[in-house]
Amino acid sequence: MAQDSANQAQTAATPAEATTRNGREIYESFREGLAEPECEPGGVSPRWRQHFATAPKRLAVDDDLLPLFGYVVDALRQAHLPTEFALIPFVESGYRPGARSPAGPAGLWQMIAITARNHEVPMRSGYDGRLSPVDSTTAAVRYLKTLHGMFAGDWRLTVMAYNAGEYRVMGALKRSGQVARSAKPEQLVGLSDITQAYVRKLHALSCLMEQADDREEWLRQLDRPVPRLQAVTLPAEIKRLDQWAARTGEDSGQLVRLNPVYADGIGTRPARLLAISAPATPVDAVASAEPAAASTAPAAASRKHTVKRGESASTIARRYDVRVADLMQRNGLGARAVLKPGQLLVIDAHDAPGNRVPSEAGSP
């Protein structure tokens, strides 16, 4: 059931009108899912508060991090798990899907190869699923769900087991004369300082978001449209991420950063990646379509573009070879409207809100 919930969170197609959401919605969802939302004055480790001091700022301003954080929070909420677990990638990889450690761990969740294989992350020649945030997050949520049940729903024991392994934590409970449902994790004996500190790190991160000195400014920075990432299964004809970017209007550089497993091309099938836009036509329908119908699919393909900092209507229109007036009209915007970073624009007339907009004479 846990696996089904996680998969549903990652594979459900998101309606076009919901491809963005406000950044504060992501934060509120995170806050609502915390097992330990209270932050007592002086109750946070000064060491880890200082260590992670810049994390809230990065979350607010990094164009990759906040959408990815939202994706992980969604997967955890769907699996009914504490959202403290969404902070694990901060500790493990700094929320970088392509992170690699000289010691061997890789990816967003910094799994070692044997752990990845044990938890059904695809690992084969030319494909390291640890570098896929889709594969690795599915596995991490499944593993955390198992640990959470094993340790009586105690989030602290769960993250300690994620760090050290469930058998070490079970052994520590036994040596300490404790049981999971009434455990005092800080009093467990036989665990490393790193494992003991894991809980303090996550709690410090959570409280930093609640008690930041510039909290009001931080909340204002979150208050913007943020792409809602989803797991997309690519059509067979897509061989490179830049082809998908050209079809959907997404940023190819961001697609590579979010999906480093496909940085050198898409050679394995099925190919699932994190993206904003889903295929205009279901993949199964494309595969079974008559040749004549399939030949018309590219003309009907959805093209959308997420506005980035510094972009204007004219630069976006030039990129897609459309007129500025048509672009603004198709998105229900006035000629003098100011575009905002994170705003999703439809490029083609057949995707415009409401109904089709006939092309004017001389327009593409």
Rank of each mutant, 00 (worst) to 15 (best):
G190W: 10
A116Q: 01
A152H: 07
V179T: 14
V91F: 00
D321G: 10
D321C: 00
E360T: 04
N331L: 11
L208I: 06
A18R: 15
G98A: 02
V286M: 15
G342K: 06
L87Y: 00
P282Y: 12
Y198N: 14
N331S: 13
L234A: 05
K184V: 14
K57G: 01
F30N: 14
T158P: 07
D63I: 06
A271F: 00
H119G: 06
G42A: 02
W109C: 09
I194T: 11
P37N: 01
R247H: 01
G265P: 03
Q78P: 00
P235E: 05
P46E: 07
A183E: 06
S288L: 09
Y162R: 04
R142D: 02
S176Y: 05
L241S: 10
R168Y: 09
L147M: 14
S101C: 08
Q243R: 10
A204L: 08
L229V: 01
S363Y: 11
A349W: 10
V61A: 06
L81P: 00
N259H: 10
F151L: 11
S302C: 10
T54P: 00
A236W: 00
E250C: 06
Q243V: 01
P227Y: 03
K304N: 09
S312A: 06
P225E: 07
N118S: 11
D64T: 03
A297L: 15
V44M: 09
R142M: 01
G165N: 05
S295D: 13
K57T: 03
P341T: 13
D4T: 14
A55Y: 01
F85T: 05
A86Y: 05
A292S: 11
L234K: 00
Q78W: 09
G171F: 12
Y127W: 06
T11L: 06
M160W: 15
I112A: 08
R175V: 10
G126M: 07
L327A: 08
T281D: 04
A79R: 12
D63V: 04
S192W: 09
